[in-house]
């Protein structure tokens, strides 16, 4: 379909660390203006998948097309939100400076950010409700605030497609709401967002597409079609954890018991019909 290309099209993506496969032959087709969650158990290769798409890891096989062209040519269309824990938050820099890093690509080598970059960064901080913190040293931020800074940094990239690695991990309720609002605003603007997600409970509410992953692709498509109990069992090997969300907003990792726990509120429904996100 050359006139209606997929935003992301990955074919036969295989990744191995030290010859040990972490992703087997994954195909992925994501249409534009979609919010897609990647879910799967720990060690399923969720982060690896987006890193491979972003070219941060060299795949053993397969290719990635962004709007029908190889990734390398389309890099400017892509924005990335790494895991919050991947950097040293004690680094001597402030919020505005981190956000301006999102402009570095359009600046290219050697050129310095100037007043235009500053204005764009402030605008992005405004969108995530962090503008008052622009001059704050990054070590003074809470987990949720750190996450919003990373989101703002991706926003100033002004990309068409965003990849976010566990943006909801360990954030407070305010930040979670802010991220969801942001996701919806991005979709409204025709952007595609791919999110590595942990909380199965919120998948139908937050996203319209979902990819179930466990080393290979279990299923990928609209939430209504794909987010079924059968597929979840395939992905999680019977260890589905449908539980109410952790009340501890700051918990680093939501507890995931090993036994299947049907959610009391959603017992009768087919898993995750999008009621609120219609």
């Amino acid at each position: 379909m050359p006139d209606n290309p997929y935003a992301i099209e990955a074919t036969d993506l295989t990744v191995a660390y030290q010859e040990k496969p972490v992703l087997w032959d994954v195909d992925l087709r994501v249409p534009p203006a979609t919010l897609m969650a990647i879910v799967g158990p720990n060690g399923a290769g969720k982060t690896t998948l987006i890193k491979a798409i972003l070219g941060l890891i060299r795949p053993a096989a397969g290719q990635v097309l962004i709007y029908n062209k190889p990734y390398a040519e389309q890099r400017r269309l892509v924005g990335y939100v790494p895991q919050r824990g991947s950097v040293d938050w004690d680094f001597p820099t402030n919020v505005l400076d981190v956000v301006m890093m999102g402009r570095y690509r359009s600046l290219g080598w050697l050129r310095r950010p100037g007043s235009r970059e500053r204005a764009l960064a402030l605008e992005a901080l405004e969108k995530v409700g962090m503008a008052p913190f622009a001059d704050r040293q990054i070590s003074q931020l809470s987990g949720g605030q750190q996450q919003r800074v990373f989101l703002a940094r991706a926003l100033v990239q002004d990309a068409q497609i965003y990849f976010m690695d566990e943006p909801f991990q360990g954030v407070d309720a305010t930040t979670e709401r802010a991220i969801v609002a942001l996701l919806h605003a991005l979709r409204q603007a025709g952007k595609t967002v791919v999110v590595v997600h942990h909380d199965l409970q919120t998948v139908p509410e937050y996203f319209d597409w979902v990819t179930l992953l466990n080393v290979r692709r279990i299923a990928s498509g609209p939430v209504a079609e794909v987010f079924t109990e059968q597929n979840l069992r395939l992905a999680y090997g019977g260890r589905i954890a449908f539980l109410s969300r952790s009340p501890h907003a700051d918990a680093e990792e939501p507890p995931t018991p090993d036994l299947p726990m049907p959610s009391p509120t959603r017992r009768e429904e087919p898993y995750g019909y999008p009621e609120s996100a219609a």
């Binding site: 890193k51 972003l54 070219g55 941060l56 890099r75 892509v78 990335y80 790494p82 991947s86 950097v87 040293d88 680094f91 820099t93 400076d97 981190v98 890093m101 570095y104 690509r105 080598w109 940094r153 990239q157």
Partner: peptide, 15 residues
């Protein structure tokens, strides 16, 4: 600065 703070993000930018 990019290399020292967040090399992975830097790589995603194409540096």
């Amino acid at each position: 600065k990019l290399l020292s703070f967040d090399p992975e993000f830097g790589a995603s930018l194409g540096f």
